[in-house]
Amino acid sequence: MINVGYARMMARYNSWQNDQLIPLFLDMSQADLTKDRGAFFGSILSTANHILAADMLWLSRYDPSMESPIESFDKWLMLHKDARDWAADRQRVDGKISHWANSLREVDLLGDLHCVPAGGGPAYDLPKGQGVLQLFNHQTHHRGQIHAMLTAAGQSAPVTDIAFLPETA
């Protein structure tokens, strides 16, 4: 389904996207970041917190030594109350995602991943490759919502097209 090259490219894409969002968030007022904008998770910051917590959850499924996020799904939206704390944690987790992706071997993508849903419900098994797709697709989906909220708030939303992903040295 996928290979380690996909995971590494998407880890770079994730970092690039978040590196563009961080200065925007830091320049916005707390009121603008936390205003309910009618999105699935309400505000820009709540949506960003949701992405961060989900990333932590998916990473902990691949590497049990990594910390899992807050156990209660509804508390994910309040993971960080301001942009500065969110940005610091976001960069820390992005580093872990990059390290994980760069350490992957093809064999690491074989077999199933045991998943316990954060929102409750029965545990399930998922092919590891499909879990990697979920990790990165989830980020992209919800960052699209953030993009729309930033635009509606009069902000200059960053470039999201993967075709413009800068190459790394």
Rank of each mutant, 00 (worst) to 15 (best):
residue 46 S to G: 13
residue 142 H to C: 05
residue 98 S to F: 09
residue 60 S to N: 08
residue 149 M to T: 03
residue 137 N to A: 06
residue 120 G to W: 13
residue 86 W to T: 01
residue 114 H to E: 07
residue 100 W to G: 03
residue 58 W to P: 03
residue 101 A to G: 07
residue 106 E to I: 03
residue 64 P to I: 00
residue 114 H to V: 05
residue 60 S to I: 06
residue 107 V to H: 04
residue 152 A to T: 12
residue 108 D to E: 12
residue 53 A to T: 13
residue 39 A to L: 07
residue 109 L to N: 00
residue 138 H to C: 13
residue 143 R to F: 04
residue 56 M to H: 13
residue 86 W to H: 00
residue 121 G to Y: 10
residue 82 D to C: 15
residue 125 D to T: 07
residue 128 K to E: 09
residue 143 R to E: 04
residue 130 Q to W: 14
residue 127 P to S: 00
residue 122 P to W: 00
residue 128 K to I: 06
residue 65 S to E: 14
residue 105 R to T: 10
residue 162 I to G: 11
residue 88 A to M: 14
residue 137 N to E: 07
residue 156 S to E: 12
residue 68 S to H: 11
residue 72 S to K: 08
residue 120 G to F: 14
residue 154 G to S: 02
residue 96 K to N: 13
residue 86 W to D: 00
residue 86 W to Q: 02
residue 80 H to S: 09
residue 130 Q to N: 14
residue 161 D to G: 08
residue 137 N to C: 05
residue 79 L to V: 05
residue 157 A to P: 08
residue 150 L to F: 01
residue 66 M to V: 08
residue 94 D to I: 10
residue 126 L to S: 02
residue 71 E to A: 15
residue 52 L to E: 11
residue 89 D to G: 02
residue 50 H to S: 00
residue 163 A to P: 01
residue 118 A to R: 03
residue 147 H to G: 00
residue 98 S to A: 14
residue 76 W to C: 00
residue 50 H to D: 00
residue 113 L to T: 07
residue 146 I to H: 08
residue 154 G to F: 04
residue 89 D to S: 08
residue 95 G to K: 15
residue 51 I to D: 09
residue 122 P to E: 11
residue 76 W to P: 00
residue 91 Q to V: 02
residue 126 L to R: 09
residue 96 K to G: 12
residue 112 D to L: 12
residue 125 D to I: 03
residue 43 S to T: 01
residue 81 K to E: 12
residue 148 A to E: 15
residue 99 H to T: 08
residue 59 L to F: 12
residue 113 L to A: 06
residue 61 R to C: 06
residue 150 L to T: 06
residue 70 I to H: 12
residue 41 F to R: 05
residue 74 D to K: 03
residue 140 T to K: 00
residue 56 M to W: 08
residue 160 T to K: 00
residue 109 L to S: 05
residue 159 V to I: 11
residue 147 H to P: 02
residue 41 F to T: 01
residue 46 S to A: 15
residue 89 D to R: 02
residue 118 A to Y: 04
residue 133 L to R: 03
residue 126 L to Y: 04
residue 141 H to D: 02
residue 95 G to E: 15
residue 62 Y to D: 08
residue 145 Q to I: 12
residue 77 L to M: 09
residue 168 T to W: 04
residue 98 S to G: 12
residue 160 T to R: 01
residue 162 I to D: 11
residue 48 A to F: 09
residue 86 W to E: 00
residue 84 R to F: 14
residue 160 T to F: 04
residue 95 G to S: 15
residue 126 L to V: 10
residue 158 P to L: 06
residue 147 H to M: 03
